[in-house]
Lab assay of single mutants.
Amino acid sequence: MLEGKVKWSNSEKGFGFIEVEGQDDVFVHFSAIQGEGFKTLEEGQAVSFEIVEGNRGPQAANVTKEA
């Protein structure tokens, strides 16, 4: 699992980007967020995730919010 911080997200469009130190930003779709209820990410929020190869390149999977 990698750790990063949410660079920005748009809940209306359903995606955002995660900033990882020393690496390119990672695309995240809201379907990759683990948990119940409305899935949102806040700018600056710490997250853990895996990287998978998506249709348009690397993207985050199994995203969990850190406490």
Rank of each mutant, 00 (worst) to 15 (best):
L41P: 01
E12S: 13
Q59D: 01
G4C: 06
D25Y: 06
T64D: 04
K65R: 11
G57K: 03
G35I: 06
P58G: 04
G16K: 02
E19H: 11
G44R: 04
E12K: 14
E43V: 15
G44I: 01
S9L: 15
K5S: 06
A32T: 07
I18C: 03
M1L: 12
L2A: 07
G44Q: 04
S11E: 09
I33N: 03
S11G: 09
V26S: 00
S9T: 15
T40C: 15
S31I: 03
E36Y: 10
L41F: 06
Q23E: 08
G22F: 05
K39S: 09
I18L: 07
I18W: 02
G16V: 04
K7C: 10
A61I: 12
D24C: 14
E19G: 09
F17K: 02
S9K: 13
G35S: 08
E43M: 14
S11F: 12
E21H: 12
Q59A: 07
Q23G: 10
G35T: 08
K65H: 09
Q34Y: 08
E21Q: 11
A67T: 12
M1P: 09
V52F: 09
L2D: 03
G37D: 09
K39T: 09
H29C: 13
F15A: 02
V52N: 04
N62A: 06
Q23A: 10
S31C: 09
E19Q: 13
V28I: 07
V20F: 05
K7S: 05
K7H: 05
E50D: 08
I18G: 00
S11M: 13
A32W: 07
T40F: 13
L41I: 07
H29T: 05
A61S: 10
V47W: 02
F38P: 14
E3F: 15
V63H: 02
G4D: 02
G37W: 08
A46T: 13
I33W: 06
H29Y: 08
A60W: 01
A46G: 09
E43Y: 14
D24T: 09
G14N: 10
N55H: 14
A46D: 07
A60Q: 00
I33T: 03
E66I: 15
A60C: 04
P58R: 14
D25M: 06
K5L: 09
A60F: 03
A32Y: 07
M1S: 09
T40H: 10
K13F: 09
F15I: 07
E3R: 15
N55S: 14
V20A: 04
V52D: 02
K65V: 15
F30L: 04
I18P: 01
P58D: 04
F38N: 11
E12Y: 12
E66M: 15
L2P: 02
F17A: 02
G44P: 00
E36M: 10
V63Q: 03
E12D: 10
G22Y: 05
I33D: 03
F49G: 00
E43T: 14
G44W: 05
E53V: 14
Q59H: 08
L2I: 11
S11H: 14
E42K: 13
G57F: 04
E50S: 11
W8D: 00
E36T: 12
E50T: 13
A61E: 06
V47I: 06
S31K: 05
A46H: 14
N62T: 06
F27W: 06
Q45F: 05
S48Q: 12
E36D: 12
K7P: 04
E43G: 08
P58Q: 07
A67R: 12
W8C: 08
E66K: 15
F49P: 00
R56P: 05
F30R: 04
F49V: 00
K7L: 04
T64S: 10
E42R: 13
S11I: 14
A67L: 13
V26C: 06
R56A: 07
E50G: 05
I51M: 08
F49T: 00
G44N: 05
N55M: 14
A61C: 10
D24W: 09
G22R: 04
E3C: 15
F49M: 03
G16N: 03
G14R: 13
G54L: 07
E50Y: 14
N10G: 03
G22V: 01
A60R: 00
Q59S: 05
K13V: 06
V26W: 03
E53Q: 14
G54C: 10
E19R: 13
L41D: 01
I33M: 08
Q23P: 03
E53W: 15
K13I: 06
G4S: 02
I33F: 08
S31H: 06
R56F: 13
F30K: 05
G44F: 05
R56D: 06
E42T: 12
P58V: 08
G4F: 04
K65S: 09
V52I: 12
H29A: 07
G22L: 04
V26F: 04
S9G: 05
G57D: 02
D24M: 12
E66S: 15
E66L: 15
L41Y: 04
E3S: 15
F49W: 00
V63Y: 00
A67Y: 13
I33H: 02
T64A: 08
A32H: 06
I18Q: 01
E50N: 13
K65I: 15
V63R: 01
F38H: 11
G14M: 12
K65D: 03
I18H: 01
S11D: 07
V26Y: 04
G57C: 06
W8M: 02
V20S: 05
N62H: 09
K65P: 11
L41H: 02
A67G: 13
E19T: 10
G44K: 04
Q45E: 13
G14I: 06
V26L: 08
M1W: 12
E3A: 14
F17M: 05
E42Y: 13
E12R: 13
I51Q: 03
E43A: 15
F15T: 02
N55Q: 12
F15C: 05
I33A: 04
G44S: 04
F27R: 02
V26A: 01
L2R: 11
L41V: 06
N10L: 07
E19N: 06
T40I: 11
E19F: 10
Q59T: 07
F17E: 00
A67Q: 12
I18A: 01
I33R: 00
L41W: 04
F15S: 01
A67W: 11
E19P: 02
E36S: 12
V28P: 01
E21D: 11
G4R: 02
K5N: 07
F49D: 00
F38L: 12
E53N: 12
A46Q: 12
E50M: 13
A32C: 08
K13E: 05
G4H: 01
Q59I: 09
S48I: 13
F15Y: 14
K39N: 10
E66H: 15
Q59M: 12
K5G: 03
V63C: 04
V6L: 07
F27K: 02
E53F: 15
F38C: 14
E19D: 05
G14A: 09
E3W: 15
Q34E: 09
A46E: 09
K13Q: 07
I51T: 03
G57P: 04
S9F: 15
V28Q: 01
V20N: 02
G14D: 03
G16T: 03
I51H: 01
R56E: 05
G37C: 11
A46M: 14
S9D: 00
